[in-house]
Design a protein around this nucleic acid. Structure first.
Length: 320
DNA sequence: TCCCAGGTAGATC
DNA sequence: GATCTACATGGG
């Protein structure tokens, strides 16, 4: 992979084991919009809001080739209005580009051959490294909601309390809102911005019964009792227990926060889909979620979180 | 109108 | 402890 800066954009060429659409659209993040018109199957562009920044990014697929049996392909990425320093210090880690996914995929297929075809079809999924607070709030929102609705609540909260950012340049001017000259977006609110909201404010963002849960999470983070760094010295099991002291955070939400924002790749969130697919593959009967989690963690070890992502896609394709 | 959604808290047994 | 249900909101 080569990294080049052309004076305004950072261009990554020959990126392996990466697919922007697969990575963003697999349910691990909710603050993005596709900005191209979808007419070119080898091209896509997105606007992503994360970590107090806005990124316009596009991807061009390159020719397929084969590396060590598992089919892979390369792509070129353009991070618009982004210099090398911002790429190196933030987006590189955000997209998990310093991790060897070829090795990870091999290990998972060794443990679970059933996943080989799904990995072949989705070879570019990466686990993002997202910011703690916005991941915590987003996954509290996610309970009992579908992805488009989760995205809507995240956007409503951002518009209500987040900082406005004016976007002077855009990657692709194809969606309606981007056509406006005064195009702007709102960042996900900071803890301080959220603290100014009342429970009714949060309800007005269509958060429903999750509003008091969000209030509790905000208060606990604002007080300093909970922070990304407070988990540094804890084991994953201890960190999960601590996260679950927040109202509205159960096993599943806690595991998502561990996996997607605290670098605990051994975490294995079990939702309705994961329960169904694991029962189909291994248990062949109704099985407790906690048991499924323990089984997967023993089976996949430090790769459990990655395996979970492929299993999720497998489940959504195979079942339903 | 009914049912479900990448769940969880609180009640009840 | 294990099970049952209400919870807001929107879409099929």
């Amino acid at each position: 992979m080569k990294v080049l800066y052309n004076g305004s954009d950072t261009c990554l060429t020959g990126v392996t084991d990466f697919n922007l659409r697969e990575t963003l659209e697999c349910g691990q993040c909710f603050n993005f919009v596709r900005t191209d018109d979808g007419t070119d199957s080898s091209f896509c562009a997105y606007r992503i809001i994360a970590g107090g920044r806005v990124l316009f990014i596009s991807e061009k697929r390159c020719d397929e080739n084969k590396r060590n049996e598992i089919k892979t392909e390369t792509c070129d990425l353009t991070l618009y209005d982004t210099d090398i320093d911002e790429y190196e210090s933030f987006w590189k880690h955000y997209f998990d580009l310093d991790t060897d996914y070829l090795l990870i995929k091999k290990k998972i297929v060794e443990e679970c051959p059933e996943l080989e075809s799904i990995i072949r079809e989705n070879p570019g999924i990466r686990l993002l490294n997202q910011q703690f607070f916005e991941t915590l709030i987003s996954f509290i929102i996610s309970q009992n909601k579908q992805i488009p609705q989760i995205k809507a609540v995240v956007r409503n909260l951002s518009e209500l309390a987040g900082k406005r950012i004016d976007c002077k340049k855009t990657a692709e001017k194809s969606i309606d809102e981007i056509i406006n000259d005064d195009y702007h977006v709102y960042l996900f609110p900071t803890v301080d911005e959220m603290r100014r909201l009342t429970e009714d404010d949060i309800r007005s963002c269509k958060a429903g019964f999750r509003a008091p849960y969000i209030m509790d999470a905000v208060n606990r983070v604002a007080s300093g009792e909970i922070s990304a760094s407070c988990f540094d010295t804890l084991t994953t099991d201890e960190a999960r227990v601590k996260l679950m002291t927040i109202k509205g955070v159960g096993e599943k939400v806690a595991n998502c926060v561990l996996l997607f924002s605290l670098g605990r790749r051994e975490a294995f969130p079990v939702d309705v889909w994961m329960k169904r697919i694991m029962e189909e593959l291994y248990f062949h009967k109704d099985t407790d979620k906690k048991l499924i989690e323990r089984f997967a963690c023993e089976k996949f070890g430090k790769y459990a979180g990655y395996a979970q992502q492929y299993l999720f896609i497998y489940g959504r394709n195979a079942l339903k």
